[in-house]
Each structure stands twice: as structure tokens, then as C-alpha cells.
């Protein structure tokens, strides 16, 4: 059974004076993994930021529905609490707050319930082992001084802990070596179930080697120009975006 989770209708978004997205349509159902691919500057990161209503971007047209509710103009934290998660391409460094404390706090905000410390720590430990993360990082300030790979793994850890309905992974694979990409894919597999969905945003296809996806969308110049299955990714891998760019 398919059930609609996210629906984007005719979305146009600009940053400053510049229009970046011009008319995006996308539907994501529970249980699905979607991939948006596209060359640099095509609007992939903008799409992710627009879903979470980053105030740096302005929506000039269109709607975003989440579980049939209009979330277009909700504040970022309200959208997050509805169950949308975004793994950042460049996670911010927040000095002075440890990863553990941050996650505890965020989990409490998302669930609205007090966090049971012991169970929480056990859960954290389990995920970290799976993601091959250094336990020492947990007491360090959030992302401060983390390597690129550590930051990305930390994003996946947050996804697992906060357990959203829809996880948007913005370039989570970029800049990672083969082993790290495998670990990240494993994290996604651990997360994935029939009731949630994943939207992977990427400009290369490496991560798709170790992950089975349902839909691949090609984004060029702020529009989805082609949608297909995993085979489309293979075609892109071999041929590049050239033929879509001319359109």
C-alpha cells in the first residue's frame, strides 16, 4: 500500500534576486527512496532548503504538502517536528554544546517527551558502533573540529536518533571515501522502513551502488527534466547530464 508523504506542487524559489527553482513537482510516498540528481547549480540544495523553509530562500510560487498538510510557510522547527529531517551538505559548527546533549535536547523537542537517559545512551552507542564513529566525539562540541567524514556520519546519527518520517540527505555522500559511503548507506538501510521515506540529493552516483532506490529524478536549471528508476542513474553515470542541459 502506498501512502502519500510529501507533495511538492509547482514550486518556484529564489535566493536574493536570482530565481533558482522554477516549477518543481514531486511526490514521495511512504516506503520509497527517491534520488534527485543534477549538475552543480541546478537547484538541488535549494530544493532541500525550501522544503525546510530556510529563510535565506524565498518561495515565489507553489505549495509543499506533508501528510496532506500545507507546510509551505511553517517555520523550520515546526516542519522538523512534523517529521522532516535534513542532513546538511555543510553541517554547522556549534561550539560549547556536546553532541550527546544536543541530541538529547533535540529528541525531546521532536518527540515532546522526556528522554530516558539510559535507553537513550544505549541507543546512541548502538548506532555509533554501526556507523563506526569514535565514541569520544560524543562529548565534543557539535561538529567543531570534526573532519568532513565525521560531520556526515554525525548527520546520519542524528537522523537515526530523531527517526523522522522523511529524511532528506543533501550531498551526504560528497567528499566521502568508499568505506565511508558504505557506512552511510548502511545507516540509511537501518533507518528505512515501510512507513518512512528518503530523499537523496546528490551529483554523483556512487552512493547508489550500495543502495536500492525507487525513483531517480534529473534536475536541470531548476526543473525536473526526467524521472525514471535506478537505471536512469546508470545512464547518467555513463553519459553525463549533457543531453538534458540542451533542453
Amino acid at each position: 500500500m502506498s501512502e502519500k508523504l510529501l507533495e511538492i506542487k509547482d514550486l518556484c524559489v529564489s535566493a536574493g534576486e536570482k530565481e533558482i527553482l522554477n516549477g518543481i513537482n514531486l511526490k514521495i510516498n511512504k516506503g520509497e527512496i527517491h534520488v534527485i540528481m543534477g549538475p552543480n547549480g541546478s537547484g538541488k540544495t535549494t530544493t532541500a532548503n525550501a522544503i525546510l523553509n530556510n529563510p535565506e530562500y524565498t518561495k515565489t510560487n507553489g505549495k509543499i504538502l506533508f501528510e496532506d498538510e500545507d507546510i509551505t510557510d511553517l517555520k523550520t522547527d515546526e516542519i522538523a517536528r512534523k517529521g522532516v529531517f535534513m542532513s546538511f551538505q555543510l553541517p554547522e559548527e556549534i561550539p560549547g554544546i556536546s553532541v550527546t546533549n544536543f541530541l538529547k535536547y533535540a529528541k525531546n523537542k521532536i518527540t515532546g517527551e522526556p528522554v530516558k537517559i539510559f535507553a537513550f545512551k544505549e541507543e546512541l552507542k548502538k548506532y555509533m558502533e554501526e556507523l563506526k564513529m569514535n565514541p569520544k566525539n560524543m562529548e565534543r562540541s557539535l561538529n567543531v573540529g570534526f573532519s568532513g567524514g565525521e560531520k556526515k556520519k554525525n548527520e546520519i546519527l542524528q537522523m537515526l536518533v530523531l527517526n523522522p518520517k522523511l529524511a532528506i540527505l543533501d550531498e551526504t555522500d560528497s567528499g566521502l571515501d568508499v568505506d565511508a559511503i558504505k557506512t552511510v548507506s548502511k545507516g540509511i538501510e537501518m533507518f528505512k522502513n515501510k512507513d518512512n521515506a528518503v530523499l537523496i540529493i546528490t551529483h554523483n552516483t556512487k552512493i547508489l551502488h550500495s543502495l536500492k532506490v525507487d525513483y531517480v529524478h534529473i534536475l536541470v536549471d531548476g526543473k525536473i527534466v526526467k524521472t525514471g528508476n535506478q537505471d536512469l542513474a546508470t545512464i547518467i553515470e555513463n553519459e553525463g547530464y549533457g543531453k538534458y542541459k540542451n533542453k
Binding site: L52, P55, R81, F88, E92, I94, F102, Y105, K109, I110
Partner: peptide, 14 residues
């Protein structure tokens, strides 16, 4: 602003 957005995306109010 970026740091605020990052934390808000994890469910924290502004």
C-alpha cells in the same frame, strides 16, 4: 543565521 537554521531543522524553536 545558518547556525540557527541548522538547529531549527532539528526541531528547536528559534
Amino acid at each position: 543565521d545558518k547556525a540557527i537554521f541548522y538547529l531549527m531543522s532539528r526541531g528547536l524553536s528559534e
